[in-house]
Write a protein that binds this DNA or RNA. Structure first.
Length: 321
DNA sequence: AACTCCTCCAACCGCACTCCC
DNA sequence: AGGGAGTGCGGTTGGAGGAGT
């Protein structure tokens, strides 16, 4: 097990960093920048290799790091980005300001992965308990969605739809589904398609998904990878949807969509919000600022079981309005 | 109190890539 | 072209500390 070349040239300290070492590194980089990392330890008076200094700075000492537990919205974003990007932690972390790839990776491995496995097992039970009532034709919605712009290999600059009380770079659009598609275009394609994807507003009568009062009776058995999520629902629901894989062609099992609401465009169905909260609550941790006390009022019957519920993908365009 | 087990996360390791000579 | 240095990234490890017995 050889060490990195830069570490062989001198006796280097290993293991945890002491506060004194941290201070030296901070002082040096604050004054001079890091420049060539291999030179940093010598110039900063540290018995470390440059690689270790770089890691310590990037993962721990950088002033713009956001410390503390991941919030539920961050967890949701990580889940969705991981669905799209896989274990490309650095790419995922770019969408989470103040978070590092290491942090995201650790969070995934220590928290999310475990919960997903538990939920997959739970969902397997749901399939038997609550079989879907939808006709095959209700896949109609999926079939109408075409992803015209392939996802770029490297996603464009970081976005954070959860910050700032707005939708960041995402342009508002007049129609719910157009919003979703524009979002997908804008988030994943550096050159948004000037002709947005056409999505029919009125499907054939026979294909109409259930109206939302029926929602309690229809449970979506799919796993979390197909989870349509939204957040900031206490203040004002802002639906979030991210893209589906462009290839192979989306199927009902890998295409995800649902209602998109933004400020002024209506609100989410209370059960929808409850379900999202239920799932995200499982990621809530001490530092989370999310409040679970301000449930939106609703008079619908409670769900017949506890725990996360996944949204039915065949919900109508105006679902929740 | 003492011990074991488990979880979390900071840090390390090796590989791949880019840049420069 | 090719080799070395520097950097970035993902997988893995090891230890601190909490939970359980």
């Amino acid at each position: 097990m050889g060490h990195h070349t830069c570490c062989n040239k001198q006796k280097v300290k290993r293991g945890l960093w002491s506060p004194e070492e941290d201070e030296k590194l901070i002082n040096y980089i604050s004054a001079y920048g890091h420049g060539c990392w291999s030179a940093v330890p010598r110039l900063a008076g540290l018995q470390r290799c440059g690689k270790s200094c770089r890691l310590r700075w990037i993962n721990y000492l950088r002033p713009d790091l956001k410390r503390g537990s991941f919030s539920p919205p961050e967890a949701a974003l990580i889940i969705e980005l991981h669905r799209i990007l896989g274990n490309r932690w650095a790419q995922i972390a770019k969408h989470l300001p103040g978070r590092t790839d290491n942090e995201v990776k650790n969070f995934w491995n220590s928290s999310i992965k475990k919960k997903l496995l538990q939920q997959q097992a739970a969902n397997q039970n749901l399939i038997h308990q609550y079989p879907l009532k939808f006709s095959p034709n209700q896949n109609y919605y999926y079939n109408q969605i075409q992803i015209q712009n392939p996802l770029p290999i490297n996603p464009p600059p970081p976005i954070n739809p959860f910050q700032g009380g707005g939708l960041g770079p995402i342009e508002p659009a007049p129609a719910v589904h157009n919003n979703m598609m524009m979002m997908m275009n804008n988030v994943y394609n550096p050159n948004p398609n000037p002709n947005p994807i056409q999505i029919p507003i009125q499907p054939p009568v026979d294909d109409l998904p259930p109206t939302w009062p029926d929602y309690n009776e229809n449970y979506f058995e799919n796993d979390i990878n197909n989870f349509m999520f939204s957040f900031n629902n206490h203040e004002k629901a802002k639906g979030i949807l991210f893209g589906a894989p462009p290839s192979p062609a989306p199927t009902p099992q890998d295409q995800v969509f649902g209602p998109f609401t933004a400020a002024g465009e209506g609100s989410l169905h209370p059960n929808h919000i409850n379900h999202i909260e239920s799932l995200m609550g499982s990621f809530a941790s001490g530092a989370s600022s999310s409040s679970s006390s301000s449930q939106p009022g609703n008079s619908l019957a409670p769900l017949p079981f506890s725990g996360p519920v996944f949204l039915n993908p065949s919900l109508p365009p105006n679902w929740g309005r």
